[in-house]
Amino acid sequence: MWQGIFSGFLWASDTVLMNTVFMNDINLAILPLIMAGIHDLISVFVITLIMAVSKNIHHVIRDIQSKGAKFIGMAALLGGPIGLSAYILAIYFLGPFLVCVITSLYPAIGSVLANLFLGERRKVYQWIALGVSIGAVILLGITYDSAIQNIWLGLVAAIMCAVAWGSEAVICSWTLGKYDLQDTSALWIRQSSSTVVSAMIVGGLILGGLSIGTVGDLILDKVNWLVVAATCGALSYMFYYKSISNIGASRAMAVNSSYSGFAILINMLFWGVVPSYQEIILGILIVGGGIVSAYDYKK
């Protein structure tokens, strides 16, 4: 359980720092895939260093050759190039607080997908809780009046991210249960696959006319913040995958969604941004509904 809580705190830190990276910078906001790729590349180095120090690097060499590695790679496409890119884009449009709250729906979405594809049955109260979460998201989009770039584009990106992350967790949970993979090895495969795919797409954009100088300027101008954010993200993922391995996807997602609450605290400490009572109430409904819909208390 504690791994999931640490994961939530670190991911909230990552989110606030990523917002710092491109605050009021439209150039970075329109290139979220580049940001996601750089973020995951840095996290690969961090994870590799940790595994080398802990002398677990040999597990990666073994596990990367297993049949389960291709399924982790599939999850990487959802979590990285799709999910993380949408997340970064949503941060630009909405800011870190709203993004954390809305994407905390992903445990509920993961439960729906687990029901459909893994046969995990959900109870009536869990479906009701899912409906409450979705309704609160809609109300948040209708009533939110703070200074944001675009509420509806941000909502689309955030919901896309939640669907991708929920799918990733289900695939990873199934893979870790079916194949003899170390959770740290699975994470290394996940981050490396995501980095490679992002690099291929960015390479295609460069060949299609995207200025290499522009990409280089983005990296150099924001590299310090990116390194700190990606380190928090890497550590968050390590705790998250450990949590999935220890207590299963539904429980891990439920505890990890605490990042939306941590983000409010961290954002207040960093920028002095205090959400309104209405935002707090809707945020509690979204987070609470997501947790209840994902967590089976009788197990």
Rank of each mutant, 00 (worst) to 15 (best):
G290M: 05
Q3N: 14
A129R: 02
S66H: 10
A86S: 14
I219H: 05
Y106C: 04
A249P: 00
S54L: 13
L285S: 09
I82V: 15
A12C: 04
L78V: 09
I34G: 03
V202F: 06
N24E: 14
I34C: 01
K70D: 08
A114R: 05
H58N: 15
T195R: 03
L155A: 04
V228F: 12
A169F: 10
S260H: 07
I128E: 02
L116I: 15
G204V: 11
D145T: 13
S245E: 14
I206K: 07
Y277P: 08
G79K: 04
F93I: 00
G141M: 11
G177N: 13
L49S: 15
V202A: 11
D183M: 06
Y277M: 13
P96I: 01
G248Q: 07
S13V: 03
Q191Y: 09
A52R: 13
T175I: 00
S133Q: 10
N150M: 03
M18N: 10
C100A: 13
P96Q: 02
L265Q: 01
Y240W: 12
I266K: 02
L77G: 13
Q149V: 14
W271G: 08
T175N: 08
L49P: 08
I88L: 14
A158V: 10
Q3I: 00
R62I: 08
L269R: 01
K123D: 08
S250Y: 06
I57Q: 12
Y259C: 00
C172A: 12
F239L: 05
A234W: 03
L105C: 07
I151W: 05
D25K: 10
L28A: 07
I281H: 06
F117Q: 06
V156M: 05
Y87P: 05
I38H: 05
S173M: 02
N267S: 14
Q126G: 05
D145N: 15
S194R: 01
Y295A: 08
D63N: 12
I171V: 11
C161I: 05
K242S: 13
V255T: 12
G233E: 08
G213I: 07
I148F: 08
G233N: 07
I219F: 15
S13D: 04
A294G: 13
I26C: 00
I42N: 02
G289W: 07
D25F: 07
N56C: 07
A75L: 08
G135Q: 09
I30R: 14
S194W: 01
L155N: 01
